[in-house]
Design a protein around this nucleic acid. Structure first.
Lengths: 230, 230
DNA sequence: ATTACTAGGCCACGAGTAA
DNA sequence: TTTACTCGTGGCCTAGTAA
């Protein structure tokens, strides 16, 4: 038996969507072609090859035809579906990298202590952060590149607010763990989400103290990322 | 932005299986080619096109490269997964057809009263069938063709047995409803699963009486089919 | 070892058209 | 109207090869 060609995949899926799992459905090659974004001729060929491959069954009477997916054809779609299910559910939802703690104060440190933010931290993270942020410098390009893609994910969103004079941008928080020991949140600021060679963390505790380190130590960070398709 | 070409689908899925959702992973075009069943050159081209389409991100240092799926690339796979999920879960699991009740006794009628079968009917269907079977003749080819594919599904399996002299084949039962009114089971017999222009039903009740019909009446039958991938 | 260029074969596709 | 043939173009693929 021949294998299902990938170009026939959409066609087969479309027949299923027409209800052709157990019953014969009427499909014209013209309409099918339009629906799969191909020509009538291609649709005709697809059906012919799907039939000879044993993925569909056809009944032709005159110039009309009825089509039904075979068990084999359905199993083929199911197999692909199961493959994707496993890949998507089992793919790690964390990003791990190494970096060095930098001594300089983070840009966000001052802002993160503002009441407009701390109120939200308390309700959304469950704590008011220890004053000041921990900065970690990323040396390897592959890590900073990976982090720059974090902005595509929602994380825990802290909303912008205004103090009457100016507005302060949103903050996205990503649950993290440093050295497998200290819980904290990586923060992405609306203002400065361009440079990702330095990342900033907030925590309930003084992270340096909790880690029992000082100066420019290397740390390993694991970030949890949840998909909530923005 | 360009669309994901279907021939790149497997390649993208494979990168995800390597763990490239959030972290950069090392992949050589040679190994990737082997794994997707294509040449090294094709793998190289796939990566190039996936990159220019914005589905993956690459970091090349010298002759080595690291790859990561972008958010866009992951969404693409998720979208396909969701499409298949909907199709598979929402596709009707029933087969509906029309036919005519035939007066002749079914082939299976005698056998279905044997204790080796009735014991199993009692435990697996919850009842001992009314003696005799109802035969329905299928006139339209598309219906008989559809029914012939039923044998690919498991249904409720009644095991073969022996009375010491000979063995009696398995029977597959499919939960059915006639005229939207009477519950019964379509039976497929191991001996005679070739001719599908006449199908046979068993029921707890006398189906003719329950339907209040006699002679050669037309009936509408709905068969429920469960997938339990044999 | 690696990536990726070029050349050429093959196949998928669509236009035209027959039945 | 329908399906599906033939044929020409374009694109996917592999072999060979450069870097």
């Amino acid at each position: 038996m021949t294998d299902l060609k990938t170009q026939h995949l959409l066609t087969l899926a479309h027949i299923l969507s027409k209800g052709g799992k157990h019953n014969f459905v009427n499909v014209t090659t013209t309409s099918l072609g339009k629906e799969i974004g191909k020509s009538q001729q291609s649709a005709s060929l697809h059906l012919k090859e799907l039939e000879s491959g044993g993925f569909i069954e056809r009944i032709q009477s005159g110039r009309k035809q009825s089509i039904k997916i075979t068990h084999k054809g359905f199993v083929e779609l199911s197999t692909l579906h199961n493959l994707l299910s496993k890949l998507i559910s089992k793919s790690s939802n964390s990003l791990t990298f190494t970096g060095t703690i930098t001594s300089g104060m983070g840009e966000g440190a001052y802002y993160m202590s503002m009441k407009g933010y701390t109120k939200q931290f308390k309700s959304k993270l469950g704590y008011v952060p220890y004053p000041g942020t921990l900065n970690v410098q990323i040396k390897e390009k592959k890590f900073s590149e990976a982090i720059s893609q974090l902005s595509n994910y929602e994380g825990i969103k802290i909303n912008p607010f205004s103090d009457g004079k100016r507005t302060f941008g949103w903050v996205k928080c990503f649950k993290s763990k440093i050295n497998n020991k200290v819980d904290c949140e990586l923060i992405l600021l609306e203002r400065t989400h361009h440079d990702t060679t330095i990342v900033e963390f907030i925590s309930k505790h003084n992270i340096r103290k909790a880690l029992k380190i000082s100066g420019k130590s290397n740390v390993k960070v694991k970030i949890s990322i949840l998909d909530n398709f923005s």
